[in-house]
Nucleic acid binder design. Sequence first.
DNA 1: TATTGTTATACTCTATAACTATA
DNA 2: TATAGTTATAGAGTATAACAATA
Lengths: 140, 140
Amino acid sequence: MPSRRADPVTVEVVELIGDVVARYHTEYEDAAASHQLTGAQARVLTLLSLEPLPMRRIAQKLRCEPSNVTGIVDRLETRGLVERRPDPADRRVKLAAPTDEGLQTAERLRESLDFAREPLAGLSDEERTALRDLLRRMLA
Amino acid sequence: MPSRRADPVTVEVVELIGDVVARYHTEYEDAAASHQLTGAQARVLTLLSLEPLPMRRIAQKLRCEPSNVTGIVDRLETRGLVERRPDPADRRVKLAAPTDEGLQTAERLRESLDFAREPLAGLSDEERTALRDLLRRMLA
DNA sequence: TATTGTTATACTCTATAACTATA
DNA sequence: TATAGTTATAGAGTATAACAATA
């Protein structure tokens, strides 16, 4: 049931979360662009740097249609950052896996994603822990 | 200066913020889609529901090129949600303004955007206030 | 028959550059 | 000459539907 009137603090928290989202998005896109990647390409490369995945699984992680993943992986493959491997267990499946260069790019991407690391540095240990606990409960 | 090694709590907070961002994005797109709007269209309509704006200002708010705004406003105008008005003070300028139907749609959009209202309801007043203060400091 | 990945198609968002009408 | 908005163009992401290969 949505429309219970929200108190002022809740309204402000929602606005602040909107600000966090906007800032996160901007920094993510900038970090991706600094490696000549789009946001979607950066997300897929980051996913694959954790473990190779079937095309279908990538679509599920991205919450998009499988047909889209074909193009994104095509472009990453053209760049030499990702390759398609056969799945020994099921010949219908293609596993997308990062190349060595792809892994390096993913690592540099992670490093340039400073969001909330710098701002969080201004908080004390206790405050960071409190923030972690509150966010955990919010997402539970 | 990015790469100072982050402590585990900071790492988890960054991950949690990523989760918040993903959830916010999903809910925003869903809310927009439930009104047959794309995310960009919903953002512009929401902006204009606060006050009519010159095309140029919309582009600045969206952090995109002015040429993109033409298409987005075109589509909102075709839907009858927005109209372009001349600016009496400068005949080069076109003010985009919501129609009555556009205002109604923007209001319903706001209502269906429950993000963080429901989850925040599970927090006490003190916790919400603490969260607000921590987010404020993070974004400062 | 069902599933995996792809192709074909169409729409939206995006940036760049060139154009117009004002200022 | 500078600015506001548009148009033209091209690339990328998205969904839908139809297809080939495999299960």
